[in-house]
């Protein structure tokens, strides 16, 4: 594993869906990573497209920011269910 690079792998499962993260792998370079991604994550026709990204290039939110970034308490009005639909009214 010396000098190998860690890559994150994203697979587009079907035409029209977006790429989803499936896991990571190690490779010596980008070309090899793409080939490895195919062999490792798409052996059974799992997708129509692969994206690989060097793990070091992924910028993540910190685990301890979970509440401050994603807090929605008291913001139920952002969801349609917050608004009662009067009886008999349709297609809202």
């Amino acid at each position: 594993m010396k000098n190998s690079i860690l890559y994150e792998v994203f697979v587009r499962a079907a035409s029209s869906s977006s790429h989803h993260h499936v896991g990571s792998l190690r490779a010596a370079n980008d070309e090899e990573a793409l080939l490895n991604a195919r062999d490792l994550y798409a052996r059974r026709n799992e997708g129509v497209s692969l994206w690989i990204v060097r793990s070091g290039n992924v910028i993540t939110s910190a685990p301890n920011e979970q509440t401050s970034l994603f807090e929605t308490e008291g913001k139920a009005y952002r969801y349609p269910a917050f608004y009662p639909v009067p009886k008999g009214v349709k297609n809202l």
Partner: peptide, 13 residues
Amino acid sequence: ESFHQRQGFDILW
């Protein structure tokens, strides 16, 4: 968008 239409209807209601 679905909340947008409902809140508008709610204002008029």
